[in-house]
Nucleic acid binder design. Structure first.
Length: 493
DNA sequence: TTGCCTACTTAGTAGAAGTTCC
DNA sequence: GGAACTTCTACTAAGTAGGCAA
C-alpha cells in the first residue's frame, strides 16, 4: 500500500525494482526449509495450542472443530479466470468489522485489546459463528464449522435421500419434460430443453450475476447463442450440439453431443433471430426452473440432478467394473475408475503444472511395468487381476487421472453408502492379510464416510449417516449388516 | 416480477505434511 | 538421512437457492 506521497512519486510500476522483495521472500522460504527438527516441533506445538484455544466451539453440547477460525489476511484478490476485479487490494479485517454469533448464555469471545466487535448476535437459526463483509465484491464471509460437524453430515444425508427420491420418480419427470418439448408455450419449451441438458449432461444451473462484477461464466440457464453450434450431422452422428463455454471457476466446457431430434429442432427455434450475445433460454431463469421442479417432486431443485446422476454413475460403474473376487489393488483401481467416470460427468478438472510432469513420469514407469498386463484400458474390466500389483494399479490410476479431479465428487456428489456397500464384501474376504477394515479403507479410498467402518469411531463428514438416530430409518442400512449387492443403493423401494 | 441479500454448498490451488526411495 | 514423490488440508473463490421488499 502506498501513501499519497508515494503515489505521486511512483507513477509506473514497471520502473520499480522489486528484486529486494523477491530476495527477501526467497530467503524466508529457504529459512523455513532449513529449520531444524526442534524448531519445526516448536512451531507445530504453537499451532496446536492456537487450534486448541480458538479452533473449537460447543454446539448443542458437542465439541466441534471450527473450519476457518483465522480471519482472511489482506492481500491481492486473485479471482479465477478473467476476473474484472483481479489484483484489487483485499483490505485488512479489524475486530470492528466482525460480527460474532454465539449463544446468549455463552462466554462471548474477547476482542483483541483496545478493540471491540462490530456486533454480537445470538442467532441460533444459522450455523455461522462470526461474519464480516469483504471489500472486493461486498460479499459476506463467515467463520463456520469444519466439514466434520454433525449438522453437515445430517444435511448431506438429506441431500442423498432427495437424490434417491428422484431416482424413484425420474422416469416420470423425464417423460414430462419430453412432452413439454412439444408445448406451444416458449417458456415451457425452453424449460424442458434446459432440464434435458441438466439431466443428460450434468450441467450446473447458474444463477444470474451482475455483469462486470465477475468473470464471464455461464451455466445451463444463462447459456448464450454464441455458446452452442448446431450441426445437422457431425462425424456420422445426427443432430449434434457443440457446446463451448466457460463454466464455474472459468473451467472450459467443450462437448459435442448428439441430442434428441425434437431438442435439436427446439434449439433452432430458440436461436432464431438472435444475436450471438443473446440468451439462448431468454424466457427462463433458475427460480422458474426450481419452482417447476418443486411442483414435480417436493424438495427437487436443479442441482439434485447432478447429485443423482453422479451417484447413479458411481453405482453403475462399480457394478460393471468390480467383481467380488478381485484382489484389493484391482478393486481399488476399479473404484478409482468409477470415481473418474463421475468426475468426467461432472466436469471436475485439475490444472496444475506439476501434474504434467508427474503424469509423464508415471506414464514412463507404467510402460515399463505394464508389459504383461492389460490394466491400461480405461473403464474396462481387467481380465487377469492376479497379475496386477498394488503399485501398478496405483500408477495406472495416476496415469488415468490426468486433468481429472476426483476429490470434488468424492466430497460432494458420491453417496458414501455406495462406496461402503462396494467394499463391504472385502472386509470379509480379505481376512488376516489386511488386519482391519480401517486399514483397508484408508489405503483404498480417501472417502469421508469410510475411513473407518465403525460408526462409533467415525469422526468424518458423513458419519451422521451411521450414528445419528434418524439414520436408523429403513433407507440407511447399517454398513456392517448390508447384504445388498455391492454398490447398489438405487434399488426399487 | 425483479433485484438484492443471506446462508450455505461446491470448487480448485498452494503448500504443508507425510511417505517412500535411494 | 535427505531428496523425491505423494497426499492431505487450509484457504477462499464461486456457485445454488430461498426469502424478502420494492
Amino acid at each position: 500500500m502506498m501513501t499519497p506521497e508515494e503515489k505521486s512519486t511512483i507513477t509506473d510500476l514497471k520502473k520499480c525494482n522489486f528484486k529486494e522483495m523477491y530476495e527477501y521472500f526467497k530467503a524466508k522460504s529457504e529459512e523455513r526449509k532449513n529449520m531444524s527438527k526442534e524448531e519445526k516441533k516448536k512451531i507445530k506445538a504453537q499451532n496446536e495450542a492456537i487450534q486448541k484455544e480458538y479452533g473449537v466451539c460447543m454446539m448443542d453440547g458437542h465439541k466441534e472443530k471450527i473450519g476457518n477460525f483465522k480471519i482472511e489476511p489482506p492481500g491481492l484478490f486473485r479471482g479465477r479466470g478473467d476476473h474484472p476485479k483481479q489484483g484489487m487490494l483485499k483490505m485488512r479485517i479489524n475486530p470492528e468489522d466482525v460480527i460474532i454469533n454465539c449463544s446468549s448464555d455463552s462466554k462471548i469471545p474477547e476482542p483483541p485489546a483496545g478493540h471491540r466487535w462490530k456486533k454480537v448476535l445470538h442467532n441460533n437459526k444459522v450455523t455461522w459463528l462470526a461474519s464480516w463483509t469483504e471489500n472486493i465484491q461486498g460479499h459476506t464471509k463467515y467463520v463456520i464449522l469444519n466439514a466434520t460437524f454433525k449438522l453437515k453430515g445430517e444435511k448431506d444425508l438429506q441431500k442423498y435421500e432427495i437424490a434417491r427420491k428422484l431416482h424413484r420418480t425420474v422416469d416420470k419427470i423425464r417423460a414430462h419434460y419430453r412432452e413439454d418439448w412439444k408445448s406451444k408455450e416458449m417458456m415451457i419449451q425452453q424449460r424442458a430443453v434446459a432440464m434435458y441438458f441438466i439431466d443428460k449432461l450434468a450441467l450446473s444451473v447458474d444463477n444470474e450475476k451482475e455483469e462486470g462484477e465477475t468473470a464471464d461464466t455461464v451455466g445451463c440457464c444463462s447459456l448464450r447463442v454464441e455458446h452452442i453450434k448446431l450441426h445437422d450431422e457431425l462425424d456420422g452422428k445426427e443432430s449434434v450440439v457443440e457446446f463451448d463455454f466457460l463454466g464455474k471457476d472459468s473451467i472450459r466446457y467443450y462437448n459435442t453431443v448428439s441430442v434428441d431430434k425434437r431438442v435439436y429442432k427446439n434449439l433452432k427455434l430458440f436461436m432464431d433471430n438472435k444475436q450471438p450475445g443473446d440468451d439462448l433460454f431468454d424466457r427462463l431463469n433458475t427460480s422458474i426452473m426450481n419452482e417447476h421442479l418443486n411442483s414435480l417432486m417436493k424438495g427437487l431443485t436443479a442441482k439434485v440432478f447432478r447429485t443423482y446422476n453422479a451417484s447413479k454413475t458411481l453405482q453403475e460403474q462399480l457394478n460393471l467394473l468390480t467383481n467380488p473376487d478381485d484382489p484389493v489393488p484391482v478393486k481399488l483401481l476399479s473404484y478409482n475408475r468409477a470415481n473418474r467416470a463421475v468426475a468426467i460427468l461432472c466436469h471436475h478438472q485439475l490444472f496444475n503444472a506439476q501434474v504434467e510432469t508427474l503424469q509423464m513420469k508415471a506414464r514412463k514407469r507404467l510402460s515399463e511395468l505394464k508389459v504383461k498386463n492389460n490394466l491400461g484400458k480405461p473403464l474396462e474390466r481387467t481380465t487377469d487381476p492376479r497379475e496386477a500389483t498394488g503399485k501398478l494399479s496405483h500408477i495406472t490410476t495416476l496415469d488415468e487421472n490426468k486433468e481429472i479431479a476426483l476429490g470434488t465428487s468424492k466430497l460432494n456428489y458420491l453417496d458414501p453408502r455406495i462406496s461402503v456397500a462396494c467394499i463391504q464384501p472385502y472386509s470379509r474376504s480379505i481376512g488376516d492379510e489386511c488386519a482391519s477394515w480401517k486399514h483397508i479403507s484408508i489405503t483404498l479410498i480417501q472417502h469421508p464416510a469410510i475411513i473407518t467402518p465403525d460408526p462409533l469411531e467415525m469422526s468424518v463428514p458423513h458419519a451422521a449417516y451411521f450414528n445419528h438416530p434418524s439414520s436408523a430409518s429403513s433407507h440407511t442400512p447399517d454398513p456392517l449388516e448390508m447384504s445388498v449387492l455391492h454398490g447398489s443403493i438405487f434399488q426399487s423401494p
